[in-house]
């Protein structure tokens, strides 16, 4: 085959350009270009290739991401709803207020009916019940017939209890501290150690025999006002050694600490006494208190007083 050489004159160029092979090549290229413009076969071929490989490509992009987010959201919602329903069921089945509150998680509150709350409320000692809602208030709200339900939730380490009407208006609410929480159970709250370690009892600690002797001289009504459930103290293994009276009044209630000598060491059992009744015992224990003094502040000092 002779080597290709550039034509040296126009005629040779024309002859070579219009040769059969050249013409066919030119027409073929032209046909390809025209058919592409007319029928867009390159676009069709690329499009079909992409359709075939579509399934193997990643599910990336906003549409897919939204779909995934929606799926995650739906699953999370289902889990939340299930948790909520479980919590509601447990709340309905709770046999005591302590059990109900114990079942409250940090992020989720629970709703119970007014009837159920009244039942649980009636089971807790009256002294403790008064620290939640006064029985008179409960009776008044019940009589108004607007009270429908109770919402409880944990907030800032405390438990909030909201009495609500049908329109979700708050009729009354209170918060419970950890110590009060424990008091709502049947077991008395217990602290390890001695009374002297608790600043609220400072200067108001008496030998147990003196305290109970003084209490024994008072009327049964006053005795119940001081210790509403003395049986719970008797149930604890050990001997009472000292009794302390708190310097704080909360909703007309005063905390009483009974230091017990138990096989596990010194423990303090806490109980709530009514202010007027505890005052009677205190007067017997410290007769000087019965003499009024204009220069001294009235005892006990109420929380918030300067």
């Amino acid at each position: 085959m002779p080597a290709w050489s550039e034509p040296q004159d126009l005629k040779t160029w024309m002859v070579r350009g219009l040769s059969f092979r050249g013409t066919v090549l030119f027409l073929a290229v032209l046909a390809i270009l025209i058919s592409e413009v007319r029928f867009s076969w390159v676009e069709v071929l690329v499009g079909r290739y992409l359709v075939v490989t579509n399934i193997h490509r990643p599910e990336s992009g906003s549409v897919w991401e939204q779909g995934r987010l929606k799926q995650v959201a739906t699953q999370t919602l289902e889990q939340m709803a299930t948790r909520q329903l479980t919590a509601q069921r447990e709340a309905r089945e709770a046999t005591s207020l302590a059990q109900l509150i114990e079942g409250l998680s940090a992020s989720q509150g629970t709703m119970i009916s007014a009837v159920q709350f009244r039942t649980l409320y009636s089971q807790i000692p009256e002294a403790v019940a008064r620290t939640l809602f006064s029985p008179i208030l409960m009776l008044r709200i019940s009589a108004e017939k607007s009270w429908d339900r109770v919402y409880m939730e944990r907030e800032n380490g405390q438990v909030g209890i909201y009495l609500l009407d049908r329109s979700n208006n708050v009729l009354s609410y209170t918060t419970l501290t950890d110590q009060q929480l424990r008091s709502t159970g049947t077991e008395p709250p217990v602290l390890t150690g001695v009374l002297d370690e608790q600043p609220e009892f400072a200067g108001r600690i008496y030998p147990a025999d003196r305290f109970f002797m003084a209490l024994d001289t008072l009327s049964p009504e006053t005795q119940r006002g001081v210790l509403s459930q003395p049986g719970t103290l008797l149930a604890v293994e050990g001997t009472p050694v000292r009794v302390g009276i708190s310097d704080e009044v909360n909703a007309d209630m005063i905390r009483i600490g009974v230091e017990m000598d138990t096989p596990q060491g010194r423990q303090i059992l806490l109980a709530m006494g009514q202010e007027w009744a505890v005052w009677q015992v205190r007067m017997l224990l410290e007769p000087r208190l019965s003499k009024p003094s204009s220069s001294k502040k009235r005892w006990p000092i109420r929380r918030g007083e300067p």
Binding site: V46, L50, T53, N54, I55, R57, P58, E59, S60, G61, V63, W64
Partner: peptide, 13 residues
Amino acid sequence: LFLVAVKDLPQVP
């Protein structure tokens, strides 16, 4: 360019 672009082209729903 086609080979590069098609590599991580998102799936069409």
